[in-house]
Design a protein around this nucleic acid. Structure first.
Length: 465
RNA sequence: GGCGGCGUGGCCGAGUGGCUUAGGCAAGGGCCUGCAAAGCCCUGUACCCCAGUUCGAUUCUGGGCGCCGCCUCCA
């Protein structure tokens, strides 16, 4: 049973009763108004890893993550650029999915768009108004949070203390500075929909409640998002659900943020690196490994140095994968069955340990550590020519990384006849002990982009980058 | 001001009241190799400071210092 830290109760608790139960997960996704940055990449990776793990562990998962395609920021930016907000949203969303693909983040089962749920949002606001939780002002409909005794659950603060900390807003007509917009009245140059409260558009907090409960029902298991969404966004989602007696999220989980020089990366601070820029310099898989090597709740600094470290670690995995592939090609299946040096029970135990770590609040750093320890053991076994054990243990490592979304398939074989000829000539030179010539040829091959490494099964080629 | 979190060896980063330790990167030594590379083996006198609890604390408690997040849009 997986245990996760639930922000609502500040404790790590079992989140799923049984593996038969379907785990509905809703994660607040992207607002599509610009290129996604490294911080967005992290949350996408974290929940992708959680989802993959849950399935691996035998849970049934329905994963939903929305696309906010209607929001102040989109409208502002589109107006600034003198273009249609829809175009901007569509273009940014395309960019989003392209980046997700590069990160090997799987597409959620459902990716609801805010603009497709306006009718349901209006219905929800009507209900809130009927129940007396909402009131109208000139510029929209507001949620009166003071009517909810449990407001502040996620912030871990009382209404009063939240109020005292609230920065004074220019607009003081609200009954409380904490009251938030459910419906924003139409303004010139903004998209609008008709409603009983006049033309306008829904507020962001309403979008997520409606999409989550529409697709997952009233009582889904997990609601996730970046730590910075905890308050007020998630608090406000909760408030609306509670006002309408919707059970809503069973547990609230939040991922830590990416930091730059000790400060959180965000669009508003302008200290962000886009994923696309990062991928120009680094392997997207290395970013996934970096994310796996830190606790999902901790802040993480993403520097070029750390990315390079992760890339080097990844290279060890790829080397092992290549080694296994060479073995697989030359051996029969029965040659690779386990011996008593490394029995099936030994590998099963490693799997169990791995699962235990993951179920302990998704402790991926420990899980990855176990995999690297196994990786070293596998290499050691192979070095000692215990091919069966080494192969099976190595396979466990490679397969488990694959499960986590890191694909370490050995690179395609080099077919370039010119390079193959150089390699052949070098082999010949080496046989004749003409090492000067052999080294010259190795240099030549290196210039063509390949490292030559001599192994027991002959010269091996691999990309130099 | 309120609330929450963090401070581990050169860097990143798990974890634990003692026991045997994480793991990755870097560094040093060795094995292997024509040389490399890869791989393996060995090496690190780590737990912010001060008190307290304890036979014993990096781990628990209290205080201090420092850093961060949220209280406004933000993954």
């Amino acid at each position: 049973m997986i245990n996760l830290f639930d922000t609502a109760i500040s404790d790590t608790v079992p989140v799923v009763a049984s593996r038969e139960q379907t785990v509905g997960i809703y994660v607040c996704g992207a607002t599509v108004y610009g290129p996604p940055h490294v911080g967005h990449g992290r949350f996408a990776l974290v929940y992708d890893i959680l989802w993959r793990y849950l399935e691996y562990a035998g849970y049934k998962v329905v994963f939903v993550s929305n696309v906010t395609d209607l929001d102040d920021k989109i409208i502002d930016r589109a107006n600034k650029e003198n273009r249609s907000w829809r175009d901007l949203a569509v273009e940014s969303e395309t960019q989003w999915w392209r980046n997700m693909e590069l990160l090997n983040v799987r597409k959620p089962h459902h990716t609801p768009h805010a603009t497709d749920y306006i009718v349901q949002m209006v219905e929800l606001i009507v209900k809130l108004e009927e129940k007396g939780y909402a009131y109208r002002l000139g510029d929209g409909v507001y949620m009166e949070v003071g009517k909810l005794s449990s407001y502040g659950l996620l912030a871990h603060q009382s209404l009063d203390s939240l109020k005292s900390g609230a920065r004074v807003s220019v607009d003081t007509s609200k009954r409380s500075p904490l009251d938030f917009a459910l419906w924003k009245a139409a303004k010139p140059g903004e998209p609008t929909w008709e409603s009983p409260f006049g033309p306008g558009r829904p507020g962001w907090h309403t979008e997520c409640v409606v999409m989550a409960s529409s697709l997952l029902g009233d009582d889904f298991v997990l609601h996730g998002g970046g730590l910075d969404l905890c308050f007020p966004h998630h608090e406000n989602e909760r408030a609306q659900a509670q006002a309408l007696n919707i059970h809503f999220a069973g547990h609230w989980i939040h991922n830590g943020l990416v930091e730059v020089g000790g400060q959180k990366m965000s669009k508003s601070l302008g200290n962000y690196v886009t994923l696309e820029d990062m991928f120009k310099e680094h392997d997207p898989s290395a970013y996934r490994l970096l994310v796996l090597q830190s606790s999902y709740r901790s802040p993480v600094e993403v520097t070029p140095e750390l990315m390079e470290d992760a890339e080097k670690a990844l290279e060890r995995l790829n080397t092992l994968a290549r080694r296994l592939e060479d073995i697989r090609k030359t051996a029969n299946a029965t040659d690779l069955e386990l011996t008593d040096i490394m029995s099936e029970a030994d590998i099963e135990e490693k799997k169990r340990n791995f699962v235990n770590m993951m179920e302990d609040d998704l402790n991926t750093p420990s899980g990855v550590a176990l995999l690297f320890t196994s990786l070293r053991q596998a290499n050691a076994l192979l070095d000692r020519h215990d091919i069966r054990s080494g192969y099976q243990l190595g396979k466990f490592v490679v397969d488990t990384f694959l499960m986590l979304g890191i694909n370490s398939v050995a690179p395609a074989e080099v077919m370039d006849p010119m390079i193959l000829e150089l390699v052949r000539a070098r082999d010949e030179a080496r046989l004749k002990q003409d090492f000067v010539k052999a080294d010259e040829l190795r240099e030549k091959i290196k210039l063509l982009g390949y490292m030559v490494e001599d192994s027991q099964s002959g010269a091996q080629l691999r990309n130099t980058h």
